[in-house]
Design a protein around this nucleic acid. Structure first.
Length: 258
DNA sequence: ATGGCTAACATGGTTAGA
């Protein structure tokens, strides 16, 4: 029996956030960390800088946009990039098996605005992800799907549900797509535990949104039943959002007995 | 009021994020 701590963090440029990443991992030596929006082409990935922090790493990135990486203390096995059968130039998914647990790290498309081409892409992308995860679950009973989902699951995950009503990140089709993901046999482990009211993981850079706690909870850790039942804790760490030049997202952490 | 910040790319203004 050991503890597997999983974390997810949209760093909004790994280059800019490397100092924060080093500080955070020193204080929070999780076993696995899923990063999104690395914004670095594969050939320029700062592998040595990550390894010096004591982690192995697998990455799948591109210039300027998107990009994901998986950091782990233990070896990353059966690394897979993208969604099989869903050709996509945008690099948003990387998966690996760590300590016998399948980890799928996702950066779900933003969707821009309801009805836009990007919104339609987001829904198509989520449908493909559902099929991918459903298939993976048949081979990996212990599976975690974590990352930036760009969907607030419920109104309590939104600072001002009235203002956001019907808009991208909360619209009914997006929430239905998240529901279809959960229906494959996954659970949002954050809600297994008592949490502070108005818990969010993202705050706009503008209008002093962080100081006003005007945020959304869109960064999630979903676990299969076999994994979720052994989840001992889950929390959002707001500390890095208070630093100088922060990411607009905060890390989310969950611990599992495996 | 569709702005407001931040990052990338480029080296000033556009694109994108959420």
């Amino acid at each position: 029996m050991s503890t597997l701590r999983l974390a997810t963090w949209n760093v909004n440029s790994l280059r800019v956030r490397l100092p924060h990443l080093g500080e955070w991992l020193a204080a929070n030596p999780v076993e696995v960390l899923a990063l999104q929006e690395t914004k670095i082409p594969d050939e320029d990935f700062p592998r040595e800088a990550i390894e010096q922090l004591g982690y192995r790493v697998a990455w799948y990135g591109q210039r300027t946009y998107n990009g994901v990486a998986l950091l782990a203390r233990a070896p990353l096995e059966d690394v897979a990039s993208g969604i099989p059968g869903f050709p996509d130039e945008q690099r948003r998914v990387i998966a690996a098996t760590v300590d016998g647990v399948r980890i799928v790290n996702v950066y779900v498309p933003n969707g821009q605005s309801v009805g836009s081409d990007k919104y339609e892409y987001k829904l198509r992308w989520l449908a493909a992800l559902r099929d991918y995860v459903a298939d993976a679950l048949t081979r990996h009973p212990r599976l975690a799907l974590l990352g930036d989902f760009n969907i607030a699951p419920e109104d309590r995950d939104v600072h001002d549900p009235r203002a956001w009503e019907g808009s991208v990140h909360v619209s009914e089709p997006e929430r239905a797509a998240l529901g279809a993901l959960l229906a494959t046999g996954l659970e949002d482990v954050f809600r297994r535990f008592e949490q502070p009211e108005k818990s969010y993981s993202w705050w706009d850079y503008r209008m002093m949104a962080f100081r006003r706690n005007a945020g959304l909870r869109i960064d999630l850790i979903l676990a299969s039943a076999a994994l979720a039942r052994n989840c001992g804790a889950c929390h959002i760490d707001k500390a890095p959002r208070r630093l100088e030049r922060p990411s607009d997202h905060a890390p989310v952490v969950a611990g599992f007995d495996i």
